[in-house]
């Protein structure tokens, strides 16, 4: 970097190097400019991560004994079926919420992008409204909708069709589906607006060209829209993966008085709920920190995987 700035200077300045105050300021200023990120990251990012690791190596009761146990918490965790159950639930809920959500968002964006659509801005605002609704409100309302005795979904959909009522909180699948719909309701509109803005950047001539070549609207969607949205789709997948690994509020509210256990058989306890249960309900902070680290590694691994996939695909594209 210094080399290039030197080379770019006129030669006379090279011959007589002046070490003025200005030069020194100019040398150090860049570090000052980038420092806020590092300062804030070390306080709120790096330090908690490392300190959590330190806590994880203890039997740590916040108001009692703090005994150093080394990696015992981690070895316990790996053999703890509750941990694997929570991991499985997290992935399951992530999968049933993300895949349909992104497909729905894509379809919604296509509809919003129609030339003929009236009141475009109104629809776009409506689509975004779940985003600005409190998660708690969403959780409470959905939990009531799914209620066994008075829930509208049971009354108007399930019972007329099957003649029976479903207790959503009891079954593994039914609870995962209930939680997933809350996540979908909150995030579909957001993703569809991201897709919409990317769609509007696709040149119209590509569609005209495809229609001249006889591509039906569906084929135009497959051969023009989807490939043009590829990097956007990857982006949304990564973002919802990171978000999905940390699903907490929706299942917690759904759990009601059951709290962070996530159902009597832990059938919908996610990793973050497991963490919360161990830390803030049982006060086993050392163990909770170990869970936090496991979650951290899981997200990092997933993000890396995503990154590799992204790079592979973008290399293919260019």
């Amino acid at each position: 970097m210094t080399d290039t700035t030197l080379a770019a200077r006129p030669p006379d300045e090279l011959i007589i190097p002046k070490k003025s105050l200005w030069d020194r300021v100019r040398k150090t200023a860049p570090y000052a400019y980038v420092s806020p990120f590092f300062v804030i990251f070390s306080i709120f990012g790096a330090f908690p991560i490392l300190y959590t690791f330190w806590i994880a190596m203890h039997d740590w009761n916040p108001i009692g004994e703090k005994e150093f146990t080394g990696l015992e918490n981690f070895s316990n965790l790996i053999t703890d079926p509750r941990f694997w159950n929570a991991t499985k639930n997290t992935f399951s809920i992530w999968f049933i919420s993300t895949i349909p959500q992104l497909i729905l968002a894509l379809l919604l964006a296509t509809l919003l992008n129609r030339q003929l659509l009236k009141m475009k801005t109104g629809f776009r605002m409506i689509v975004l409204s779940p985003q600005v609704t409190s998660v708690l409100a969403v959780g409470i309302i959905f939990t009531q909708l799914y209620g066994r005795d008075y829930g509208l979904i049971n009354t108007f959909v399930v019972e007329p069709i099957t003649g029976d009522r479903i207790d959503y909180g009891v079954g593994t699948w039914s609870s995962h589906i209930a939680v997933s719909t809350m996540v979908m309701w909150r995030w579909t509109g957001y993703n569809s607006l991201i897709y919409l803005s990317a769609m509007q950047a696709i040149p119209r001539s590509l569609y005209e060209c495809a229609s001249i070549d006889g591509a039906s609207p569906f084929r135009q969607f497959v051969h023009v829209t989807i490939p043009q949205l590829r990097s956007t789709i990857i982006f949304t997948v990564i973002v919802s993966t990171i978000g999905g690994m940390q699903i907490f509020a929706e299942p917690l509210v759904f759990s009601g008085i059951g709290g962070a256990q996530g159902g009597n058989r832990r059938q919908f306890q996610t990793l973050t709920m497991f963490l919360y249960e161990q830390g803030f309900e049982r006060f086993k902070f050392g163990y909770a920190s170990a869970i936090a680290w496991a979650l951290f590694l899981l997200i990092v691994t997933f993000a890396m995987l995503n990154y590799l996939v992204t790079r592979r695909i973008s290399q293919d594209a260019s």
Partner: peptide, 20 residues
């Protein structure tokens, strides 16, 4: 529709599919 006409078009900005 365009594809039912014995006509084809070369666009000013080429309109090639960048991903193909």
């Amino acid at each position: 529709p365009p594809n039912k006409r014995p006509v084809n078009t070369v666009f000013q900005n080429y309109a090639l599919f960048p991903h193909m």
